[in-house]
Amino acid sequence: MSAWSFFFEVLVAGLAAGIMYSLVAIGFVLIYKTSGVLNFAQGAMLLFAALTFVSLHERGMPFLYALAITFLVMVILGIAIEKFVLRPMINQPPITLFMVTLGLSYIIEGSAELIWGTQVHGLDLGIQDEPMQIAGVLVSQFDLFCAAVAAVMVAALTILFRYTRIGLSFRAAAEDQYAALNIGLRLPFIWAAVWATAGIVALVAGLLWGARTGVQFSLSLVVLKSLPVLVLGGFDSIAGAIIGGLIIGATENLAQVYLGPYIGDGIDSWIAYVVALGFLLVRPSGLFGQKLVERV
């Protein structure tokens, strides 16, 4: 194999991994954009969703039923978190809310494992994972499927934000909470809807990640992979989450393959952070994030 086609394979595999990070990052962006909360519990929600689905399915429930019930559970969980945990803390500084979601992730992770047990589950979504040859480069079918799901999700969210009434309210709330209140938007309703949506996004990401790595506790750690993506893409941009994910995924994989032999194994634990940080120091609000102007 030529050096170039090997390079492209590494690159494509990296991009595919990047899409997986983006899927998680999108859940963060949704909530951050509309309520200014960086929801560390997104990873725990993802674990909760995947574990709930796989446990129901393993207990004999048909695929679609299990999916529907998990869907409902995630919507309810999202709404409950917003209503009982975050709403009472409105007007607290963002960093306090961040620490609240840290506590939340402990509760959700603990509960998920308490309810469904701590063993590792396999998850088969019925998707072939045989590599395909595209333009001389081997590509995993499963990766293509994930990319397609991500594309559909981004399209759906874009339509939701751009063309529906509720999407307009989301955007208004994101622009200016006071103004949104003044023109009579019901912010609590919007927030609840956003958290429910984030629950659904967690479900989608959880199923894909679960199918790839197995459903187990470490799923909630994907949150750590998506944070550099957010830093790179900006906390409030869906496009940024996608592009940030692709950049992070690609650099991570390339670094691992080409630099790994020289500096050691396992550099993927931090290389993404270094890339994101280096970038941040040049552009403190990310690729697509809004520049914050300090008002005096």
């Binding site: 945990v85 803390m89 607290q92 306090t96 620490m99 609240v100 506590g103 939340l104 402990y106 509760i107």
Partner: peptide, 14 residues
């Protein structure tokens, strides 16, 4: 313990 700790964090912050 994990759940308890998470809940305590939230309660204290609030």
């Amino acid at each position: 313990q994990k759940i308890f700790l998470g809940a305590l964090i939230i309660l204290f912050l609030r």
